[in-house]
Design a protein around this nucleic acid. Sequence first.
DNA 1: CTCGATCCCTGGACGC
DNA 2: TGCGTCCAGGGATCGA
Length: 288
Amino acid sequence: MRQAILGRRIVSVTLGKTDFIDDPAALKQHLPGRQIEAVERYGKFMLLWLSAVNGKARVIANGDAAPASLLVHLGMTGQIAPSPAGQPLEKHTHVCMLLDDGRELRYTDARRFGRIAYLTKALLAEELAGFGADPLEVSKKEFANRVCGRRARIKALLLDQGVLRGVGNIYADESLWRARIHPARLGTKLSRKDAEGLRRALQEILRKAIVLRGSSISDFLDAAGEPGEYQRHHRAYGREGKKCYRCKTAIRRAIVAGRSSYFCPKCQPAPRGFVALPLPQRTKKRKR
DNA sequence: CTCGATCCCTGGACGC
DNA sequence: TGCGTCCAGGGATCGA
């Protein structure tokens, strides 16, 4: 996104469905004339830093012209990328931002689980206040403190954006597999050593996944319109019934923290009394 | 404090 | 082939 849009000025905004946008009118009102001065990530959010607006004294009096930000969350199916303005609109395109170089920055999202918000500095700070540590930056001590001693299941803790910001279902399962920790174990039952193994696994997996531009399961595309490649490296996620890469035991699935969770029942010993879902009878053929 | 249930939403896979 | 049902999971919210 930096490569694609840094330094561009937004000329105008066109909106489609807006039920996932905090205040749609604010986009039309405040984005035109703003320059995109920085692009940052905060957990699962993308943050576009917008310049102040020049020469509108009346608006400045309201504080409306101060530097501000556009917060973007892709949810499950969101995509944001620039395209030539003449190009026909993809289905489910809900935001078009015309840029000063003639291209359009477009946001498409079939399921509209994403979120877009125009926020002043103060509102943004409020918005980001409740989030946890960045998983790539978190220290050994802080990670252990955030996880050990909690009564929730480790899978729920990994997915909790207030504990760590940015981890989703795929990378939670992948890191637990790598660290040989069962998703249903409780935070309180993890040793400091367990926690450190998990932190290491999580960081290694995230770094590699970033290099490979993420996991494209069905529809994820990056800002260059390219799918990621990390799905080829998945060791647990989506592999129910397939052999564990370490021990050849069939990977199992269970609902943990309300989400499908994949794990090796041998490498990742379950807590007492835990029951995985029965392996589905194979009616259809599988590949890969 | 933590849980499960429910809702939002659409496309794709699946069963019949 | 066509149609109904389920599932994917990011998050918010509610009640137990």
